[in-house]
């Protein structure tokens, strides 16, 4: 019994070490969203000038699994993910809607002309970005998977990379499309 007691500090150390190890591998930027499994926020966003759509509203998300991507012409990481979004659009697997966050709509439209336009619909959310805040956005780019009933099912923080798409987002979309 006494012997076991001597092992107690080792056990306590072990447990703490596990916690700290887990902490070391977590990305502090990836704040778990509280909006998962909740309906998309009510929004009614104006269109980008010259794009020809009518903007983005909550009703537009009903009936199909879709992606909502937060971008801005000022956002550098968006430039990185954008070609891949264009590729995803070409596959036709899922419609992507854009929210031009904290941006001058003219710049937002220009940016899409320059880097390609993967979006079905685009809504403008100028500062103070009420809709983005309703989505719990912490930075751009961020991508949400919204199901047929307009419930948010997943939030991806940072650029959508081929790995993230194939390993995480695509399987969720396939599951939701069943």
């Amino acid at each position: 019994m006494r012997r076991l007691l001597y092992l107690l500090p080792v056990a306590v150390f072990g447990i703490l070490a596990l916690f700290f190890l887990r902490g070391l591998t977590l990305n502090p930027r990836e704040i778990p969203s509280v909006l998962i499994n909740r309906p998309v926020p009510v929004m009614n966003l104006a269109p980008l000038p010259g794009r020809g759509d009518t903007g983005l509203t909550t009703a537009d998300l009903k009936g199909r699994v879709s992606l909502v991507n937060i971008y801005g012409s000022w956002c550098i990481a968006c430039v990185q993910e954008h070609p891949y979004l264009v590729k995803i659009k070409q596959t036709g697997i899922v419609p992507i809607h854009g929210i031009d966050w904290r941006d001058d709509p003219v710049e937002g439209a220009k940016w899409l002309k320059k880097h390609g336009d993967p979006y079905d619909r685009v809504g403008v959310d100028p500062a103070p970005g009420r809709t983005a805040i309703d989505f719990g956005v912490t930075g751009a780019p961020e991508t949400f998977i919204v199901d047929k009933d307009s419930i948010i099912r997943y939030k991806h923080i940072g650029p959508v990379t081929p790995e993230a798409w194939e390993q995480t987002l695509l399987p969720i979309i396939k599951e939701l499309n069943k």
Partner: peptide
Amino acid sequence: LVCQNESIEDSNADLARDLRVI
């Protein structure tokens, strides 16, 4: 949410400004 260990009152980040306004 951007600088994480600052309050929105202390931060210069755009998102912090938006939250202050709201």
